[in-house]
Design a binder for these strands. Structure first.
Lengths: 199, 199
DNA sequence: AGCGTAAGCGGGGTAAAGTCCGTTTGGTCG
DNA sequence: CGACCAAACGGACTTTACCCCGCTTACGCT
């Protein structure tokens, strides 16, 4: 036994995965994301509820799986498609191209992507504090050609919750070391964006 | 009657708000975030479950309120504290100082901040795709002194879900206009970060 | 003070997420 | 071909966020 790959997927499991994804897509079109329940999906696909949970882990997992499935195409483009999205172009061009592609991807699948975030009744999330403050300050900096609204949002999210929390949550890293690293990273990012040249 | 302010808060409501926040903090320390249920909080504070929901709207709302409460102090520092966090310093310095303060704030309150994100068993969220791809490409760009790991995370989040979804979700803006704006914003951000000078 | 009313309160009810464990089945090895 | 086992399945059960609506209470007005 070589343990490089943990185990191949069983045939019935693979079949059911496809069945579940197909049923989920149907239901999504019929009743919309917020009415798609685990029970409903189980019934529609003719499988047990336990099976649905085994596959997806949670309600949000369904949408994640759906999105991953749609994203596979984008991944292929990135790995072996034509430049600048695929290999062969200068890295900066590829980064720009990737962002463009991803924005379009999310715009196209925004309903599913939204449902991924779980909070099914959270409706309007709030993150205005950092963003507003940054917007005000950025206006005072001379940044010709920049879209301040968008830039403020980008920086706010670069700074905010998910990134930090993910690392903090990981292998118990709430200590001083990653904190210092984020602080340095933030300083570096801001100085690059604002065009501070020197030492 | 002047209708500028919708209505002042009733006295008992204010008292109960404080009581609930205090009870929530106690329970948080005793049983941890994931065991803090709405029923438990209601019982501990001697109020009805309906009241708890009226106050906070949802489970996540509790943690949001707790975090907002703690953040009020930071807000004060920003609005009227000493520079560089408060007014009086050059904007870039203030931006850097704000980021530093916020990183420390989140590091200190990471348990609560984490619980804010609702998905109580979501555990490890996945966002490796964009991040890994960006990391690889950024390494090919000459960026002296940059922490590529951190930078890749920052850019990935600047690009990713929450920002887009928030605007898409808002006043129904999935159309082409904001998409184009995000694409342009991304190009601008990347070029600033990577030090592309010219036209 | 007495009254009207709108906001706040209570807690039982509901639906849906997530868990458990006994049963079934696909795959492999003798 | 038959036995064995780990993985997959099913669906009843538990937990808990969230809703609903009749009751209570604080505040403004006369």
């Amino acid at each position: 036994m070589t343990w490089g790959t943990p185990r191949p997927e069983r045939a019935d499991a693979a079949r059911n995965r496809q069945l579940l994804l197909a049923s989920a897509r149907e239901l999504l079109a019929e009743v919309g994301p917020e009415c798609l329940t685990m029970d409903l999906l189980a019934e529609r696909s003719g499988l047990g509820k336990g099976t649905v949970f085994r596959r997806f882990g949670s309600r949000a997992g369904i949408f994640q799986a759906l999105l991953d499935d749609a994203e596979r195409d984008l991944q292929q483009q990135v790995l072996s498609g034509p430049p600048p999205l695929g290999p062969g172009a200068p890295p900066v061009d590829r980064i720009v191209a990737y962002g463009t592609a991803r924005v379009r991807f999310l715009a196209e699948h925004h309903a599913v992507a939204r449902a991924t975030l779980d909070g099914r009744h959270a409706a309007g999330r709030r993150r205005p504090l950092s963003e507003i403050h940054l917007r005000v300050l950025l206006r005072e900096v001379d940044l010709p050609g920049a879209d301040i609204e968008v830039l403020a949002g980008q920086l706010a999210y670069a700074l905010d919750g998910p990134l930090l929390l993910r690392l903090f949550a990981g292998p118990e890293l709430a200590g001083p070391e990653p904190t210092a690293r984020f602080e340095a990273g933030w300083r570096d990012l801001v100085e690059r964006v604002c065009g501070v040249s020197g030492v």
